[in-house]
């Protein structure tokens, strides 16, 4: 199994300026379904920020697909980010784009497909998630679990090698979490050949709902297995 995400002696400062020593060395490989749970929102946010490269480590390094992301230029980092699908905590969607345009945005921006082709592919992804609403509606009035479905479709838009979920279960009913989890697990099994890594960071104890095959937790500002 190829190592896709790797932390080396990683520590960072959280939003309150407190140092978090996340790990000595830790790696995540293709095909895994990992849940990292934390009782601390800050630690979970910092973790996502580090993987996304929007937060710099205080010490150590984050390697994504074998590259230390702190050494990369903006364009190279942007290129790596296209290989990772992110599901954000509050199901953040671009508010002035319609639902289908939100899903099509990474496709149209990062590929050579035309607008119409991007929209067509976005429609297929929305169908895959079971989205039944109006695709040409603005996303803000949608309920959280529906917006999370749209986020799943957008995260899968560029057929990523890694999907990172931030607080997937947060704000959802148990059935809704199960539905989203089934969706991701099913998608992972479809991608058996290139073995998708699903990495979920949960602030709280709902991590178990997302059917991990590897479970870790941030305890006292340390990442333990």
């Amino acid at each position: 199994m190829a190592v896709l995400v790797e932390f080396k002696k990683l520590s960072c400062l959280n939003d309150d300026g407190v140092s978090i020593a996340l790990s000595a060395n830790c790696s995540f490989s293709s095909g895994q379904r990992v849940v990292i749970s934390s009782s601390n929102d800050n630690a979970a946010n910092s973790f996502i920020g580090l993987i996304a490269g929007i937060k710099s480590p205080a010490a150590g390094s984050v390697n994504l697909f074998g590259e230390d992301i702190s050494t990369l230029g903006l364009d190279t980092l942007a290129g790596l980010r296209t290989r990772v699908g992110f599901l954000f905590h509050d199901a953040v969607l671009v508010s002035n784009l319609k639902v289908i345009e939100n899903v099509a945005l990474p496709i149209i921006y990062h590929s050579e497909l035309t607008y119409d082709e991007g929209i067509e592919r976005a429609q297929k992804l929305l169908d895959l998630t079971g989205y039944r609403g109006e695709v040409w509606a603005l996303p803000d009035p949608l309920p959280l679990h529906v917006r999370k479905k749209v986020c799943v479709a957008r995260a899968l838009a560029l057929a990523p090698q890694v999907v990172v979920c931030e607080n997937l279960a947060s704000g959802l009913a148990r059935e809704e979490v199960m539905q989203l989890t089934e969706l991701l697990v099913e998608y992972q099994s479809r991608r058996a050949k290139d073995r998708l890594l699903i990495l979920t960071v949960e602030a709280g104890t709902d991590g178990v709902l997302v059917k991990p095959d590897r479970q870790m937790r941030i305890e006292g500002n340390r990442l333990v297995e």
Binding site: I54, A78, T82, F86, V92, V94, Y109
Partner: peptide, 17 residues
């Protein structure tokens, strides 16, 4: 509004400047 809703960060994370 987009900045407050962290949509700019979300775009950046998706590799969109």
């Amino acid at each position: 509004t987009m900045r407050i809703a962290k949509q700019l960060t979300a775009l950046e994370i998706m590799g969109i400047d």
